[in-house]
Design a protein around this nucleic acid. Structure first.
Lengths: 264, 264
DNA sequence: CGGGCAATTGAAATACATCAAGGCGTGTGG
DNA sequence: CCACACGCCTTGATGTATTTCAATTGCCCG
């Protein structure tokens, strides 16, 4: 129960091997130091607070584990959410809702610093699934401890509220896009919003960014069919707006592209 | 700065008369006693906590005002949000996003107990507008004080988190509806979800409920045109699923209607 | 080399939008 | 009290964005 040094992390037994998940228990401080989302994420705020405040929560040390899953693997199933708060460290994932007949809507793309569930600290998100697009590594906190930190550190709560506000704004825009924008607008806006988020994480070079999405991901995110996504993307390419090759996307004519996206 | 009895409320100067808003400063305890959303709302949780905890916040009494606006009036404009946390006491309102060319998406219908903005306690919601459908009365809290209560009373924070989870769930479903469901499904689901929410507030009688929405409201909520909404509703009527007259809606064949809505 | 997933393309179908006109109810002003 | 306007609902005809279906290609990986 005594106070211990920070880089100490309680190791946690975890994995069923068939899950293909690697677990390591890295130090919060060192592992996260290189995180591209350091200033954006609730993750960083938590580690800062833990660094200066009391370090035990409900009698235990702050337990975190780091997991790595391969591309295309489903991390959380609709009915099977853990009691943890999970935050992406690296890679791309999607959070989606699926109907019994297979229709699927992607609710958000998860990048470094994003929580699996927008309500993570307070509840799991049954109904949603989370799936890795690229290889993904994420960190998993015990929810009870996470919540305790929240209440002990108002500044962490403030950070969390900023994250919520941002997520909520994106959810609102998603509804506006799906309900009221054309296919061209939706797709252009999806690309631009990803670019913006990558930019904040220093993951772009000029107009070029990593782009691991398959066309069916774009389709499921924009409420369209893969076939139609293909046609729109081909048009964009033919008009010299963008270029995609090798899982890399370049915006060739930003101004015009923003116009197409209806961002004036 | 002393402790005062609860029903005391600091009166607040407020209204420009052209705003058509009536202001009264009713007691939290008495006015809210009859609120149909008593158990659902953050509002009730706040008043319970205030009743037993310290009653001053930042040196002032908890200031709340009650406002009434007539049907069709816009209460909050996209660029003009106050520093208050507003909660509907009575009536129907909508919260929406509008594009410069007039396309509009309704994000939610606000009923008794609902906050104008889902992030109310932490920030305003620039970009959104709130508009009364029926006559609406709402209560307005000072945000700073509201937040203070939140931090002083973990149980209020818990209630708030439940509200958030619920709102978030509805936002997710909205995206799924708009992106992946047919017109019939969207409209049927809108009606059913309103019924469910009214039921929780004891505002339904059997299969009959107040239904003040115009067809253009349904259109803006489901991402359709008013003309198409009309056709779908006519079909529903012709098939004996529902009946609408006099701002009142009755579900005639609940089982089949739920099937149409894709709720199996 | 084969098998499977992803991208591409064209043709046909359809769900929904747009356009246009008429009717009905309600409030308002002469 | 009538006339009129205005908002809302309704209906039919026509247009179009997007889907569905189907077939082909390329590509990665075992």
């Amino acid at each position: 129960m005594g106070i211990t040094l920070l880089p100490q992390v309680a190791p946690v037994d975890y994995e069923a091997p068939e899950n293909q998940t690697c677990v390591s228990s890295g130090s919060l401080a060192t592992t996260c130091a290189t995180c591209p989302a350091n200033e954006l994420s609730i993750c960083a705020a938590v580690s800062r607070s833990v660094a200066k405040g009391p370090r035990n929560f409900g009698g235990a040390l702050l337990a975190t584990t780091v997991h790595t899953v391969p591309a295309r693997k489903t991390i959380c199933f609709p009915s099977d959410w853990s009691d943890n708060v999970q935050i992406v460290c690296q890679g791309w994932a999607i959070s989606s809702l699926t109907l019994s007949d297979g229709r699927r809507q992607i609710l958000s793309f998860l990048l470094a610093g994003d929580m699996f569930s927008p309500v993570g600290p307070f509840a799991s998100a049954p109904g949603r699934s989370v799936e890795a697009i690229t290889d993904v590594t994420y960190r998993s906190f015990n929810r009870t401890q996470f919540k305790a930190i929240l209440f002990q550190h108002p500044e962490v709560m403030e950070t969390l509220s900023k994250v919520w506000i941002d997520e909520r704004w994106r959810a609102d825009q998603l509804a506006l896009d799906l309900g009221r924008r054309t296919a061209d607008e939706r797709i252009a806006r999806l690309i631009l919003s990803l670019r913006e988020r990558l930019e904040k994480r220093n993951l772009t070079q000029n107009q070029t960014m990593e782009f691991p999405l398959r066309q069916h991901h774009i389709a499921d995110a924009t409420g369209l069919t893969p076939v139609h996504v293909n046609k729109v993307l081909s048009d964009f390419r033919r008009s010299g707006l963008i270029e995609i090759s090798n899982r890399t996307l370049t915006i060739l004519d930003l101004e015009e592209f923003r116009r197409v996206a209806g961002m004036r």
